[in-house]
């Protein structure tokens, strides 16, 4: 059964990837890329990687297609063929591919429990994390404590991308007249408005659940941040951008993005203040397990704040571009 599922998912992935490469309709390519994300999320699920599946579904089938569609709306969906580069590309890809295939020949068999990867570092996480950190989701333990510094880096990457997008596009939309800010809203669609309004509160509630339940089940700051942002994005799709900006303006979102990183960084410094190493939460409370627990909750909060803020920032900036494009079209 597992084998059939595995083979089905892999062949679907392959068909999707080849079709994306082949089609010249960018709209189809973006939608299929979303499907590719969803398929790989399913694959991760079947591999037992629930946290990764959750994240990939949110990113690969959610945020990423959303941003690409906004870009397409401005740049157009037609793509030109470039036959002259195909042969060069085919040759280099074949060389790299053959190198990779030959590398796989001496790899440990797929799923084998005796593979070196399962024998050296990972066993400690499975056997000792309950005693050392005290939470059942091992992925959260590793992500937020054993390898917390990688996760700090991850938050900084998101922050950097947000700032990069802001520096590229952010300072153009502000010169627009206020009244043309919301052509995205479709006031006539009553069904959309009602459904949108009904959906937003449960989405926010779910985000909070994912944020604080990440230690016991799949989820955590990143996923929660994305879901939280999606709540606002949905609202702005239905009611217009300025309806959202009345609640959260751009400079507030920008400040929150920086704040999340600062929260994470400061929790790390508290480790030094408590006489231990950077990002060591053991000294934050009386006993080390409670300290770990507290530290993880605090840094996950930092992750959630930055991720939600950056996602909203990026979406606002991209939609402002869309508005700007339409204004320019009207003018000409």
């Amino acid at each position: 059964m597992e084998l059939i599922l595995d083979i089905t998912l892999l062949s679907l992935l392959l068909v999707t990837a080849v079709y994306i490469a082949w089609t010249r309709d960018l709209f189809a390519a973006v939608m299929l890329a979303g499907i590719y994300g969803l398929l790989s999320a399913s694959f991760f699920m079947s591999m037992g990687a629930v946290d990764v599946a959750f994240t990939e579904a949110a990113v690969g089938a959610g945020i990423s297609p959303l941003l690409m569609l906004s870009t397409l709306a401005i740049c157009g969906r037609a793509q030109r063929a470039n036959p002259q580069r195909a042969i060069l590309a085919l040759i280099s890809v074949t060389v790299v591919g053959l190198l990779l295939i030959s590398a796989t020949l001496e790899m440990p068999a797929f799923g084998s429990p005796d593979a070196p990867a399962h024998l050296h570092v990972a066993p400690r996480y499975l056997t000792d994390s309950m005693r050392e950190i005290g939470i059942p989701n091992v992925v959260t333990s590793v992500l937020a404590s054993y390898r917390a510094f990688d996760t700090l880096g991850e938050v900084v990457v998101i922050f950097t991308a947000g700032l990069g997008v802001l520096s590229l596009l952010g300072l153009q939309g502000e010169t627009l007249p206020r009244q043309v800010q919301s052509p995205m809203a479709e006031p006539s669609h009553l069904v959309l408005r009602v459904v949108g309004k009904v959906l937003v509160p449960p989405i926010m509630l779910f985000a909070l659940y994912v944020q604080f339940h990440g230690e016991y089940g799949p989820g955590g700051g990143f996923q929660a941040g994305v879901i939280f942002a999606v709540g606002f994005i949905l609202y702005s799709l239905v009611f217009g951008l300025d309806a959202v900006e009345r609640i959260v303006n751009r400079s507030l979102v920008q400040a929150l993005a920086a704040l999340g990183v600062l929260v994470y960084g400061t929790v790390g410094v508290l480790g030094i203040v408590s006489g231990r190493n950077y990002l060591d939460y053991s000294g934050l409370a009386g006993d080390s397990v409670t300290g770990q627990h507290l530290g993880i909750i605090a840094i996950e909060l930092g992750v959630g704040i930055t991720v939600a803020a950056v996602m909203m920032l990026v979406f606002f900036v991209f939609s402002a571009q869309l508005v700007r494009g339409r204004v320019v079209q009207h003018a000409s």
């Binding site: 990687a49 991850e154 990457v157 950097t160 991308a161 997008v165």
Partner: peptide
């Protein structure tokens, strides 16, 4: 299943979307 690759890929997915957003901008 081994949790370590999961943790690494969570980070890598985030790096991926960050790159995509910047590239699209």
């Amino acid at each position: 299943s081994n949790p370590l690759p999961h943790v690494l890929i969570l980070t890598a997915i985030v790096v991926g979307i960050a790159t995509t957003a910047l590239a699209l901008a």
